[in-house]
């Protein structure tokens, strides 16, 4: 098991609101994510899960409220967004690999151009990461030559190459064929075991039950209920949670 001595707050979200024009998508979300914690976010579609995640690295601008990452308020206008994002790895539902670059080029692009790592070092680190996700032999393949599961593993390696403090996963397996979901979840499981702080939006309840330390149930822009997987899945308190779980489990 992972060691968690001296729990340290990694992310703190305080009363986060987000409007899209008149649509109130996030209605005051407050929560904390500890270092090394794996937090799963579940809930019905349209409930604001992705928006919540994207507000935390400012792919969406929060309308009000605060997000502190390692104590820094990232909603402050003077925050260097690009610097902030280097600390947060993001994995998307649709992979979003760069189609004009090979896998290894995808991975070493950001370290070289943002972190200013030398090409040699970036390549070495990239190859090690590809090894880790089991795709070292695909280093020079282009994304469209890979299966969905392989693309998503490369995307994870690409995010890891920036050595982020925390990883966000936005429904990483939702666009995959069923037989490829396992290989992506395996990589994520291994990351969790290594102690990576992770926030995972997902519908893979089995995976969440096994790996997550805490589950947030998000519906209608609010955290309806949060707790350990055991609490949420086996003893949900709120009717809304029970309804949702009865549909997906």
């Amino acid at each position: 098991m992972r060691e968690k001595c001296a729990p340290e707050v990694m992310i703190e979200v305080v009363d986060l609101h987000k409007y899209f024009k008149d649509l109130h998508v996030l209605r005051g979300i407050s929560t904390k994510v500890m270092r090394g914690e794996v937090v799963a976010v579940i809930g019905p579609s349209g409930g604001g899960k992705s928006t919540f995640l994207r507000c935390m690295n400012r792919l969406e601008e929060p309308s009000s409220g605060h997000v502190y990452i390692e104590g820094v308020d990232i909603t402050h206008p003077y925050v260097d967004v690009n610097k902030l994002r280097t600390e947060i790895g993001m994995v998307f539902q649709s992979f979003n690999l760069f189609p004009h670059l090979t896998c290894i080029e995808n991975i070493k692009l950001a370290p070289m151009h943002v972190r200013k790592v030398s090409e040699k070092e970036a390549t070495e680190r990239g190859m090690a990461l590809l090894e880790k996700v089991g795709l070292a032999d695909k280093a020079h393949a282009y994304p469209d030559q890979l299966s969905g599961g392989q693309q998503q593993r490369v995307a994870i390696a690409r995010a890891l190459a920036m050595q982020p403090q925390v990883m966000f996963f936005d429904e990483p397996t939702s666009a995959l064929d069923p037989e490829m979901i396992g290989e992506v979840l395996d990589v994520m499981r291994a990351m969790a075991e290594e102690g990576m702080t992770m926030v995972v939006v997902s519908h893979e309840m089995g995976f969440i039950r096994e790996v997550a330390d805490r589950v947030l149930f998000l519906a209608d822009g609010l955290i309806v209920e949060e707790g350990t997987p055991e609490e949420i899945f086996n003893h949900p308190k709120e009717q809304r949670t029970k309804d949702f779980l009865s549909k997906v489990l």
């Binding site: 690295n57 792919l59 690009n82 610097k83 902030l84 994002r85 280097t86 947060i88 790895g89 993001m90 998307f92 649709s94 979003n96 690999l97 760069f98 692009l109 950001a110 151009h113 943002v114 995307a155 690409r158 995010a159 920036m162």
Partner: peptide, 12 residues
């Protein structure tokens, strides 16, 4: 999504 992925990696 390409632009988002690039931004998420910290590219300006």
């Amino acid at each position: 999504g390409q632009i988002e992925a690039a931004h998420a990696l910290g590219l300006d």
